Amino acid sequence: MAEPRRNTADGRQDTQRDARTASRPEARPVVPQDAARLWADLVETARRSVTDGLVVGTSGNVSARTGDLVLVTPSGVPYDRLTPADITGVDLTGRQVLGTLVPTSELPMHLAVYRTTDARAVVHTHAVHATAVSVLVPELPLVHYMAAALGGPVRVAPYAAYGTDELAEHMLRALAGRSGCLLQNHGTITYGATLGQAYDRTAQLEWMCRLWLTASSVPGLTPSLLTEAQLAEVGERLKGYGQRR
């Protein structure tokens, strides 16, 4: 039963209980179970990007959407230090609704993807080979048919400073009809229906960039490239790829 407040002789309320209450640690906000599970998957994906060499330190970021809530990696925090208590979430306007850590500086890009596509997860990296390609060509040459898994030839979004609305606008144009693109002098961004799909697309994009750089580096030889028609054929075949439930 709650302890009643007592009036002192001079009519003031007893502040002893208030002091005891104030000294207790603040109760943490209740996090829905689905958000807590998604946060755990998000942290695992972020750590995997470091393990797989797609990110150095905290140079990339990952997000996932559930309803109108977007969970994002916080700015400048090493992924191996993230805990369930570090959950960081914003609404689709960017207003922080979960956690106290500052969201990733690339939040404008993530939110732009969610506002304009059916994405449920976004992965951004500074992968070496993909970033190298971004400074060489305006579009990744069609060196492999897996470009079809990203919707077609992978475009390079023109450079803009990180964390800006300008960069988000360039990215959206490069993503038109695609689920991934390169960011000039910067890195990659991909999205998908799940964290796993978004991550796999990032890994495939980095692999294709590495393949093209390797093939094009052989003196005296030029890599053979696929035609748009050949890529379209693969796109149709990929629609039936995998196990059917």
Score class of each variant (00 low, 15 high):
141 P>H: 00
244 R>K: 06
121 A>D: 02
32 P>I: 00
225 L>V: 06
13 Q>V: 14
77 V>C: 02
174 A>N: 07
68 D>A: 15
69 L>P: 05
79 Y>Q: 14
79 Y>T: 13
26 E>Y: 07
21 T>K: 13
214 T>F: 11
130 A>K: 06
216 S>K: 01
70 V>D: 10
87 I>D: 03
227 T>Y: 02
124 H>M: 13
148 A>W: 01
66 T>Y: 11
216 S>I: 01
25 P>M: 03
190 T>K: 01
83 T>M: 03
50 V>A: 06
4 P>Q: 04
203 A>S: 12
90 V>A: 11
180 G>S: 05
116 T>Q: 15
131 T>V: 07
38 L>D: 01
30 V>G: 01
236 E>T: 05
173 R>F: 00
79 Y>S: 13
199 Y>F: 10
64 A>T: 08
115 R>T: 05
62 V>I: 12
42 L>V: 03
125 T>R: 15
161 A>C: 00
56 V>C: 04
63 S>M: 15
27 A>C: 03
134 S>Q: 05
61 N>K: 10
184 Q>I: 03
147 A>L: 12
10 D>H: 08
55 V>K: 05
147 A>D: 03
158 P>A: 02
73 T>N: 04
186 H>Y: 04
181 C>F: 07
91 D>N: 14
197 Q>S: 04
40 A>L: 05
88 T>V: 13
133 V>R: 05
153 P>D: 03
21 T>L: 15
102 V>T: 04
127 A>S: 15
34 D>R: 10
192 G>W: 08
139 E>G: 00
86 D>T: 06
211 L>V: 14
66 T>N: 09
114 Y>I: 02
106 E>P: 10
59 S>C: 11
192 G>T: 08
33 Q>K: 04
73 T>Q: 08
81 R>K: 15
243 Q>D: 12
110 H>Y: 09
238 L>N: 09
31 V>F: 07
176 A>Y: 00
221 L>E: 14
215 A>W: 06
125 T>C: 13
58 T>N: 11
209 C>I: 03
219 P>R: 02
37 R>N: 11
171 M>Y: 06
63 S>Q: 14
235 G>K: 10
170 H>L: 00
82 L>D: 13
22 A>P: 00
38 L>P: 00
119 A>Y: 02
178 R>G: 00
174 A>K: 09
40 A>M: 08
228 E>R: 14
11 G>L: 08
67 G>P: 04
14 D>V: 10
235 G>S: 11
64 A>D: 05
9 A>L: 15
43 V>R: 04
165 D>G: 07
173 R>S: 08
155 R>S: 02
89 G>I: 10
49 S>D: 07
128 V>L: 14
180 G>M: 07
211 L>N: 05
135 V>L: 13
137 V>C: 00
56 V>E: 14
210 R>H: 13
86 D>E: 09
146 M>V: 06
132 A>N: 04
137 V>Q: 05
32 P>H: 02
19 A>N: 11
138 P>D: 15
4 P>F: 07
19 A>Q: 14
51 T>V: 14
163 G>N: 06
206 E>C: 10
87 I>Q: 12
148 A>Q: 06
59 S>H: 11
183 L>H: 06
21 T>I: 15
229 A>P: 00
189 I>R: 12
58 T>G: 13
201 R>N: 02
